[in-house]
Nucleic acid binder design. Structure first.
Lengths: 181, 181
DNA sequence: AGTGTATATTCAAAGAATTGCATATGTCAA
DNA sequence: TTGACATATGCAATTCTTTGAATATACACT
């Protein structure tokens, strides 16, 4: 499973606590690997016992104590080895496509409403990604190595959302033509 | 979980056995909802006890007996109700993007090789989808209702694969420019 | 004084998925 | 006749994920 590696990838440049990691997952890694805070805490504990990360308890006066996690050399080695192992494209699991597949058995209005909802959701995400692109990635040629890789994940996000948007429009158009079923 | 609904959707027009369903999942529904045969058998048994499907044991002389499953009226009602419930876009889980996110820590050649592998995989899938489009969906305007919905799932598949292909090319191009790290 | 929010971690139970195995029968080719 | 392959279904063990909590501190607002 790639959760361990997603955590290592997020932690490697910026050591932080489980709580911070969970928040970080909402903003960057989470765009392509979602994880709840429970998942993250459990995985961190496991990585700790395996020696892939180190933890250091930080006593805080104004807040609850926290554990600061950082990737060990061994952990980094494991991450690089995992990257080198060939992997298949992750199998798709798309609820909306299951709905469309069975769409002939539901009222047309229901299908169209659901398509509109999705269109809207993807529109919002697209706008978010476009904002990030505007703010941080104006000149793709002059990016640092780190930034180039981050830029590429953002580009994939943009492509995803644009693709969904285009498809939603196509679907709405095709299904609005006739009114039967 | 949408596995139950994916099974209903696949079964509703063509009643069949678990074995046939598993094969069917490889060819159509499986493009957007993967499931192993164990998953399918277990879920069918559950749907049977819940009354969402009926099963009829067919004795075969030349082959092992099989159970023919068909969706009940109650099952169909459940499916339509599920379709009407708003759902969020399925959270992404993409290993290759985790790899790219951590890409600065791995040798550039490894990253490029992995991108090439993915490019190839998506190329193959795109070709498959294009073949299906050529064979069955020449005139999108004159499709039956059933076919329209199937066509739309195919269109999403085409968009997916084309999007991946475009991104792989962009990534390979950007990462080939310099050779550091 | 009470309510809400942010920080910070963890447990327990249930549900889902994966992996590997086990069991049959029949056909076809080497 | 042996081995591989297609048909056909299922169990068991493990792992992974999800859901719903519980616990604790501190600050800000009303």
């Amino acid at each position: 499973m790639a959760l361990a590696q997603a955590i290592l990838a997020a932690l490697i440049d910026f050591p932080c606590s489980g709580y911070d990691l969970a928040k970080r997952f909402d903003g960057s890694v989470g765009f392509f690997w979602k994880a709840s805070h429970q998942q993250i805490y459990r995985e961190l504990a496991k990585l700790d016992t395996q020696g892939w990360v180190n933890s250091e308890t930080i006593h805080q006066s104004s807040r609850p104590d926290k554990k600061l996690y950082s990737v060990t050399e061994f952990g980094q080695k494991q991450l690089v080895e995992w990257i080198a192992q060939p992997s298949e494209p992750t199998p798709e699991k798309e609820e909306i496509l299951v709905k469309i597949f069975a769409g002939a058995h539901a009222p047309r209005t229901v299908i169209l409403a659901e398509l509109q909802r999705h269109r809207h959701a993807h529109q919002l995400r697209l706008a978010t990604y476009q904002d990030i692109e505007q703010q941080y990635f104006q000149q793709p040629q002059s990016l640092s190595v780190q930034e180039k890789f981050q830029y590429l994940t953002l580009r994939r996000g943009l492509g995803f959302e644009l693709g969904w948007l285009t498809w939603c429009d196509e679907a709405i158009q095709l299904l609005s033509q006739d009114t039967n079923s």
